[in-house]
């Protein structure tokens, strides 16, 4: 068949220069400097702030990690999961088991627990990936429930009543809290930067292709499958880190709370409110959620009602979230390419 295709370039008036394709720009450079400054201040913080503040901020860092991981799954991988609490729980329990039961150094136990999460996620993905869309979402939830119910049967980690993290008991609380704080800050920075680098890699390109055109991407099936599986495993490990952070911060793990679907709700709200499909969105969302959580704490359950309504409204009215309101004028992490006038 001889297709008669309109020539795309033909409409450009003669004499204009072709657009310049670039990545990042001035706002990205300013942003990078600002980010480094913020991280530097955060690193210094334990020398000038109370233990309570540090404990609070570890909570914020875990939100950043959780939001970033959920965004990696949904915003870049197109996979809506409501079962990430499986890996939050395995991370938390992993830390307790490795440190308390096996005597591993707790700061080493945290990354090891994350690796365990990744190892659990890999075979699990073969089951979960048999489902798509909303059914995938509920499938991940079932898997999380199975993990919770199994853990509840394990007496070594306190069965239904949970366990305490006692491995830090030799450490002065001042140091313990500061160390946990620095560890959490490090994890948050590494996770955000890691996703940024992942999205700039070939895998990131494949993921962007999936998001922008699932049918075209499906024709290069194998690469897409591999990219999605990688994302699923990485997100599991990241959630495991967050779970370990949470337990290192509170020193206690309990199946009913660490495997709660409320974590998924939180992650979704963080990403939706901040802006799905951008690296900055979950950061903004985590900060907003953290502030809301503090202010709305007195409201009891109303706070989830309010946050839920806000998330629904944002999805319908401003699907790019708060970060989307900048309309790409500000870009801290230039992932995509931008086509602009030369200069």
């Amino acid at each position: 068949m001889t297709g008669v295709q309109p020539a795309a370039g033909a409409t450009r008036p003669a004499g204009t220069t072709p657009p310049k394709v670039r990545r990042g720009g001035r706002s990205a450079r300013i942003g990078a400097v600002a980010m480094v400054a913020v991280v530097a201040v955060l690193v210094y913080l334990p020398f000038m702030s109370s233990r309570g503040t540090q404990i609070d901020l570890v909570g914020l860092f875990s939100l950043v990690v959780l939001g970033t991981m959920w965004n990696l799954l949904a915003g870049y991988g197109g996979m809506i999961s409501i079962g990430q609490q499986a890996f939050i729980g395995i991370g938390g329990y992993g830390l307790v088991y490795l440190a308390t039961n096996l005597g591993l150094d707790p700061f080493l136990a945290v990354p090891v627990a994350a690796v365990v999460c990744g190892l659990v996620a890999w075979p699990t993905s073969y089951l979960a990936f048999r489902l798509t869309g909303g059914y995938f979402a509920i499938g991940t939830w079932v898997i999380a429930e199975v993990v919770r119910l199994l853990v509840t049967q394990v007496d070594a980690v306190g069965a239904g009543s949970g366990a305490s993290l006692t491995a830090f008991s030799g450490l002065d609380p001042v140091f313990r809290i500061a160390y946990v704080y620095w560890m959490s800050l490090t994890i948050a920075v590494v996770v955000v930067l890691g996703v940024y680098l992942l999205m700039r890699s070939r895998t990131g390109l494949a993921l962007t292709a999936i998001r922008d055109d699932p049918t075209a991407a499906a024709s290069s099936g194998v690469a897409v499958d591999r990219a999605k599986r990688l994302v699923y495993v990485v997100a599991a490990a990241g959630c495991g880190l967050a779970g370990a952070m949470i337990v290192a911060n509170t020193l206690r793990v309990q199946p009913g709370s660490i495997f709660s679907v409320d974590y998924s709700a939180m992650m979704i709200f963080i990403v939706v409110i901040g802006g799905i499909g951008t690296i900055e969105g979950p950061l903004v969302g985590a900060i907003v959620f953290y502030l809301l959580q503090d202010t709305l704490a007195e409201l009891g359950n109303w706070y989830l009602v309010v946050v839920g309504v806000v998330a629904v409204v944002i999805t319908l009215v401003a699907p790019k979230g708060l970060w989307g309101l900048t309309r790409g004028r500000v870009e801290l992490f230039p992932v995509g390419y931008r086509v602009g006038p030369r200069g």
Binding site: I80, G300, N301, L304, G308, V312, L316
Partner: peptide
């Protein structure tokens, strides 16, 4: 209907948000 026009993810996000809202209203 509105969510349906927002692509594949929007209906899931909206119905999940709705579930959380209704559940917590019942709790209250």
């Amino acid at each position: 209907d509105r969510a349906l026009r927002g692509g594949e993810l929007a209906p899931l996000l909206v119905t999940f948000g709705l579930a959380i809202v209704i559940q917590n209203l019942l709790l209250e």
